[in-house]
Computed example of a mutant assay.
Amino acid sequence: MASFFKTDDGKWRAQVSIGGRRKSKRGFATKREATAWAYELEREAKESLSSDIPDRPFRDALERYRDTVSIKKRGQKFEIRRIDRWLGNGQDSADPLCFIGLSDLQSKHFAEWRDRRLQEVAVGTVLREWTVLSSICNTCAKEWGWLKANPMTNVKRPKEPESRTRRLLPGEFEQLMVATQYDIDIPPESKSERIGAAIVFAIETAMRAGEICGITWEDVNLERRTVHLPKTKNGNPRTVPLSTTAVKVLQQLQTLEDCQRKAFNLKSDSLDVNFRKIRNKCLIDDLHFHDLRREALTRLAKKVDVLNLAKISGHTDLRILQKVYYAPDMGDIALMLD
């Protein structure tokens, strides 16, 4: 039986009794982390002498993975949200996968899950969820001994959707600037103006929404015209060069009191939601904030070679850069041939 105590420094200590001996550990930032540690010790004690698949439902695998693996990931918020949805910790009921015993789990169950989800959400969403489920099954098989093998390896993965090619159409940038009331010569004090500044900055730098929102002044060097990104989507830090326009955006933000720590003082969720509202207000169809990254890279491709373009964007696979993000106008390419 495990016990948990909050220490004087605000952290948590866990204590668990195994085989008549007590084990204790302190310094956990949250009770969930302390619970996960105690749960792991108890599980190992119960199953260390057994090579058989435990008599547990798949729900237990989802919970254990969420509490011991997901919490260590940079994208933990989104992964935990997905797992909680499968567990029924929200408005939706638990997925049927939760109630299947680990010893009974077969490829057909994941094929049924795939077909179910394809009726409910887009293929891209199913593929992202597929990655999480497959990782859970791999961990069960390779590390925990809860499965003999990953049953998803025998299930046909949905076909990747066609890559987006959406770029700004003539007049759309001007519409967005009017809607946000952003003027690059004036400090953007309102949230709407701040969204406008982020739009311009994204087009000038090819940075993602989360990267833009995470910029701190410590990472900005206006003399060298660079911004350093210590944490990126693929885990590799990179330094992004800044155009004259991008520098001007930052210089205006630097004068604002509420932007003294984070340059834009925006959260990525808020940026995305407000961008969609502004887009809809302009009656612009099917434009995502992330499409501005494609717009930026296509423009930058006219100025730098492909290797420098990959350095700016952070792509390690040039095929993805070419297939997904670089969308040139063949009419423009034709003019370059003369």
Rank of each mutant, 00 (worst) to 15 (best):
L292P: 00
N274E: 12
D305M: 09
V304S: 10
D291Y: 08
I284M: 08
N280I: 14
L266S: 04
D272Y: 13
D291C: 10
K303R: 11
A263Q: 05
R279S: 15
H288C: 09
A296G: 08
H288D: 09
D285T: 12
E295P: 05
A296N: 06
V273W: 11
N280S: 14
N265F: 14
A263D: 04
R299A: 11
A301V: 02
F289L: 06
L297D: 05
L283V: 07
F289I: 04
D286R: 14
L266C: 08
R279D: 05
N265Y: 14
A301M: 03
K281P: 01
L271D: 08
R294K: 02
N308Y: 12
N280Q: 14
K267Y: 07
D305G: 05
D272A: 13
L297N: 00
L283D: 15
I284F: 14
D272V: 07
D286T: 06
S268I: 01
N274C: 04
D291V: 03
D285H: 06
A301G: 06
K303S: 11
K267Q: 12
A301N: 10
R299C: 02
D272H: 12
L266E: 00
T298D: 13
D269I: 01
V304Q: 09
D272T: 12
N274D: 14
R279T: 11
V304N: 09
V304T: 12
R294N: 03
H288I: 00
S268M: 01
N280M: 14
D269V: 00
N308A: 01
S268T: 12
R299N: 11
C282M: 07
R276Q: 15
L283Y: 07
K303H: 13
D305K: 08
N265H: 15
V273K: 15
L307E: 07
D272S: 14
E295Q: 13
R299Y: 03
L300G: 05
L266Q: 02
K281A: 10
H288S: 03
R276Y: 09
L271R: 06
R293T: 12
L266N: 04
R299F: 07
L292C: 02
K277G: 04
D285K: 07
S270F: 07
A263Y: 02
R293E: 10
L292D: 00
